[in-house]
Design a protein around this nucleic acid. Structure first.
Length: 763
DNA sequence: GATCCTCGAGTTCT
DNA sequence: CTCGAGGATC
């Protein structure tokens, strides 16, 4: 890097860090995540380490934070409350350990592992055994006096009266808001029509900084103590591990998970264990703090800048992040429901980049008080499905817009309906193309007709190209038709390229750009920028080329006789159809004619008729024509089927288009009767037992396990209730485990489950 | 009419 | 995984 560039980068980093520091510490409304902040800080530290001559006294690396907020008395920490360096992977952890080894000139030494609780650090001062002052960390040098509020936390002893307590003693710890209490508080707020709080950490900070301690007292705050600030006139332990033990003797709450490790491998084990199990804890944990155990070693290692060399925070990948809600889009589901979803500024949450999340329905958006343009907290529910938790209301500028459900279907433009008492808004147009697209995807999905090789993309492309107009049409597709289409598409693409080149007189290099543009359906910002940089184009020029390509495509598609209009996505999908995959697809379509009747009924996509209900219907009627002729009353008399489902079935088959689909399926050879099923001999081992399977099993998939349970006469539930006989737990079990523990449902591991399948008896 | 349970439908990313 | 709604039950 050139010297001038370097200076500029350092300046820029300092300015950004200062800004974020202020937002975090003073305003309490950060706009970037901790991980993002850490990244900035790390870059600055690295640049300054390599170029010490550029370090200035006012650099954020030279002091621990920013000024404390007003409103509370200031407390100067006699010993600064340091912060910790962070590592994010095993590699970096080992590097830290090697550095410690070198400085200590020692191979092996004990380390203490503690869970890094996501709360806020406090210092508690005791004089002659009496709690006299409690302060927040603030900027590390000066914090706020929040003694009155801390007194309301019942796990903080107001007096310590064991022998040998130092005259003056300061212990440090982390105050947090328990997850359960946080959930309850938010439920109450929602019930009272107030917006929920974004996350426990900010709420803990807010609670502790209430000017009225009675408000603090109403919050279930708690604390874990983990460090000795200082001690005068008293026996001082010689290791961190002993200090923790001593804390407990004195009546301080320490975290039971803390562990003494004799090697780095043990530390890694501790990290892995809690990475898996942290969700079950009642407090947020964002990593593991690793400390050199012996205090004299700590002293020898010392501190560099703001961080001690003898401790490090080994962070978990963040599962919660703050990002921008760019817009709210609306999808149309198979049943016509309008489903709003969040379009987010891409952000890495727990190792995956999230840019979309469902928002369920209008009421949910209102309840959470989300507005377009808000900064929002995003997490991955159960570590998988992204979810928008809450807006950061304090970050609002007034530019945010409220979301309104469109009055017309975004796909077909027909007016939408929201039935009174229901949360969903529907497009009631039976000919809505979006609904049909979803129906086709459902029809070919696993569990339904199970056409392997036909995923969402291909299904949509076939509709787009005009080859499929109703679900039965997939049975009249031919190999020649598909290959012919692919050829036409290829000609269209090369035609578009030539035409654009001719009209705009492009150079060879620019032709490359056009090729790129006909390679990808959508350009996101990052991709567009890469292309511009590579071919030395302005963004405007690129966009005008893109416009030209799209324009010419529309004309060409029409003249080539492919379809009236077609999406880029579809073109690219069809272009990739090779002869071999067409063969496979034809075979899969043919094979799908042999699916059991239950799957066929399910595939029809009747509202309120999922797989379970389809099974009940097939068991009762045994034939599709009989089901079609069934009356309202007959249907409603079947256990498990009430008036609503009955009505839905009758009105589905009353529609002529739906009757035709069934006729055509029959014509192509889809069975309309259920093949007689021989009863299994030993089908009673699990009779009447309701068993739930959760997590990943080693020997079989979850659905296989559920099939086995059903074969043996049991039922496989999807949620744990008090009627559940057993919960079978695999790897990475989620919330169901906690639920089972709460209800006292017996828990089986895979081994015990297999035994249950054999004998019908649990351990 | 309230409460529990089960099912359906929509969902994200690698 | 989550929410909503249908059905069963008291």
């Amino acid at each position: 890097m050139v010297e001038a560039d370097l200076r500029q980068r350092i300046e820029q980093l300092r300015k950004e860090i200062q800004e974020h520091n202020y937002r975090y510490h003073v305003l309490d409304t950060p706009i970037i995540s901790d991980a993002q902040f850490d990244a900035l800080m790390r870059e600055l530290v690295e640049l300054e380490t390599r170029h010490p001559e550029l370090v200035t006294p006012d650099s954020p690396t030279q002091r621990v934070g920013a000024a404390p907020a007003e409103g509370f008395a200031e407390v100067v920490h006699p010993i600064p409350m340091i912060s910790l360096g962070n590592v994010f992977d095993n590699e970096e952890l080992r590097a830290w350990h090697r550095r410690v080894q070198q400085r200590l000139e020692m191979e092996s030494f004990d380390l203490v592992c503690e869970l890094k609780i996501d709360g806020l650090a406090v210092a508690l001062t005791y004089e002659q055994g009496r709690f006299v002052r409690g302060a927040t960390r603030g900027d590390g040098l000066r914090g706020e006096d929040v003694t009155a509020n801390l007194r309301t936390i019942r796990s903080i002893p107001l007096t310590v009266s064991v022998a040998g307590v130092p005259e003056r003693l300061e212990v440090r710890g982390e105050v947090y808001f328990p997850k359960s209490g946080f959930k309850k508080l938010n439920e109450e707020r929602i019930a009272a029509g107030e917006p929920p709080y974004a996350n426990p950490r900010n709420t803990a900070a807010g609670s502790l900084r209430q000017l009225d301690p009675r408000i603090t007292a109403s919050r279930p705050l708690n604390v874990y103590l983990y460090a000795l600030g200082y001690a005068e006139d008293g026996a001082i332990p010689s290791t961190q591990w002993d200090a923790l033990a001593r804390f407990r003797e004195m009546g301080f709450r320490t975290n039971p998970a803390n562990a003494l490790c004799h090697s780095l491998e043990e530390v890694q084990g501790f990290y892995r264990r809690w990475l898996e199990e942290k969700e079950a804890l009642d407090f947020g944990v964002d990593g593991v703090v690793v400390k050199v155990n012996r205090f004299n070693y700590q002293q020898h290692l010392g501190t560099v800048g703001r961080e001690p060399r003898w401790a490090i925070a080994y962070k978990f990948p963040a599962t919660q992040q703050v990002t921008r809600l760019i817009n709210i889009g609306v999808n149309v589901g198979r049943t016509g429901t309008l489903n709003p979803y969040a379009i987010l500024e891409p952000v890495n949450v727990g190792g995956a980049t999230v840019k979309m999340a469902t928002l369920h329905n209008e009421d949910d958006i209102r309840r959470k008080d989300l507005r377009i343009g808000d900064w929002v907290v995003v997490e991955r529910a159960g570590e998988v499905i992204p979810q928008v938790v809450a807006p950061m209301t304090a970050r609002r500028t007034g530019e945010e817009r409220e979301f309104k459900m469109p009055e017309r279907c975004p796909a077909c433009g027909e007016p939408v309906v929201r039935p009174p008492g229901e949360a969903a808004t529907y497009c009631v147009n039976t000919a809505c193309p979006a609904q049909f697209a979803r129906l086709l995807v459902h029809f070919v999905s696993r569990g339904a007709m199970d056409v392997e090789g036909m995923g969402e993309k291909l299904a949509l492309a076939l509709i787009d190209a005009g080859l499929v107009k109703d679900v039965a049409d997939i049975y009249s597709l031919t190999r020649e038709q598909l290959l012919g289409l692919k050829e036409k598409i290829a000609r269209v693409i090369s035609g578009v390229q030539k035409e654009v080149a001719a009209r705009h007189q492009l150079s060879n290099a620019q032709m490359q750009v056009v090729k790129r543009l006909t390679d990808e359906a959508l350009l996101d910002k990052a991709e567009a920028e890469t292309i511009c940089a590579r071919y030395d184009l302005t963004l405007e020029r690129l966009m005008s080329l893109k416009g030209a390509v799209d324009g010419v495509l529309v004309e060409t598609v029409k003249t080539a006789g492919v379809a009236e209009t077609i999406e880029w996505e579809s073109i690219l999908t069809l272009e990739k159809l090779a002869a071999k995959s067409v063969d496979n697809l034809m075979a899969a379509i043919a094979a799908s004619k042999q699916r059991p009747l239950t799957s066929v009924v399910y595939a029809l996509g009747i509202r309120h008729v999922g797989y379970e209900t389809a099974q009940m219907l097939v068991r009762h009627f045994g034939s599709l024509p009989k089901l079609m002729r069934a009356s309202d009353e007959e249907l409603a008399n079947i256990p498990g089927i009430g008036p609503k489902i009955a009505e839905s079935i009758v009105s589905h088959f009353r529609r002529e288009a739906n009757q035709r689909v069934v006729e055509r399926l029959e014509e192509v050879g889809v069975p309309m009767e259920e093949a007689a099923t021989p009863r299994e001999g030993r089908a009673t081992v699990l009779a009447g037992m309701q068993i739930v399977v959760t997590g990943r099993l080693a020997g079989m998939s979850r659905s296989q396990a559920e099939d086995r349970i059903k074969e043996l006469g049991g039922s496989a539930g999807s949620s744990v209730t008090k009627k559940t006989a057993y919960l079978v737990v695999g790897e990475d079990a989620g919330s169901k485990l906690a639920q089972a523990e709460k209800l006292g449902v017996p828990i089986l591991d895979e081994q015990q489950f297999l035994q249950l399948l054999e004998t019908g008896k649990g351990p």
